[in-house]
């Protein structure tokens, strides 16, 4: 599936939970959950299927505690579809291919930028936050004491992270500008992923199925 067009992967991942909520419970959601697990298993049992099952399991536990069996089954299968579908998507969707697809399709370069830059900034700042926490632990930060004391400790951890991040915004803006990133610019796609007619047809078909399910639900 990794070689499929990114838009096809996104459409499929969006259609599965949509159908799970629209089709009659529990049979509809059972079907979509089965499809989602099938995709996850095909993408890799240990890398994709197992994390999907592990993520979905706690929901079943809480549902079972809070609700009766038919409700548990209906909501549980929906959530399972959604979890398995997204864990699968995160595993097979390559961000660079998605960005290229967006640019090739004539999306604004700024939309593609915001999207890609967010994906690369998140791990960067997570790592930075962990470093700050580690450094403060070495200087005696501990998760004990009164709430007021812990709030002050939280402020001491968060403030440097936020201030350095805002300082960085300035430098990022200057660097982007000098390298020609402008709203409305026509960017050259570097390696646009191929989009065969069959896949385009499949995307439209999925959309129609979802609309049909919505109509069926409302009528």
């Amino acid at each position: 599936m990794r070689t499929r067009h990114p838009f096809t992967l996104l459409t499929l991942a969006a259609a599965l939970p949509t159908l799970a909520w629209l089709l009659p419970a529990p049979a509809g959601a059972l079907g979509t959950a089965a499809v989602a697990f099938g995709l996850a298993a095909a993408a890799g049992v240990r890398r994709v299927l197992v994390p999907a099952v592990v993520t979905a399991a706690p929901f079943w536990l809480f549902l079972f505690v809070l609700h009766d069996l038919p409700t548990t089954l209906a909501i549980g299968l929906r959530i399972t579809t959604m979890v398995a579908g997204f864990v699968w998507l995160a595993a097979v969707l390559a961000p660079d291919r998605l960005v290229e697809a967006m640019v090739a399709r004539g999306w604004s370069v700024t939309v593609a930028y915001v999207f890609a830059a967010t994906l690369s900034a998140v791990p960067l700042f997570r790592a930075r936050a962990r470093r700050i926490v580690e450094a403060q632990r070495c200087r005696g930060l501990s998760p004990r004491g009164s709430v007021a004391k812990r709030l002050r400790a939280l402020r001491a951890l968060a403030l440097p992270l936020l201030l350095s991040a805002l300082h960085e915004v300035d430098e990022r803006a200057l660097a982007l500008e000098t390298r020609g990133l402008r709203s409305g610019a026509r960017r050259t796609p570097l390696a646009p992923p191929p989009d065969p007619a069959l896949e385009r047809a499949a995307r439209w078909a999925l959309l129609l199925v979802c609309i049909a399910a919505l109509v069926g639900r409302l009528v």
Binding site: Y113, A116, A117, R172, L174, A175, T178, L181, A185, R187
Partner: peptide
């Protein structure tokens, strides 16, 4: 212009060095 801090100048939009270097030229169309 090349600014003093290298990290903040990465485009964030490239997932290989080749694409990073191509970021500017691609933006010029």
């Amino acid at each position: 212009i090349v600014l003093p801090t290298p990290w903040t100048q990465l485009s964030g939009m490239a997932f290989t060095v080749w694409d990073e270097v191509a970021f500017g030229p691609a933006n010029l169309g």
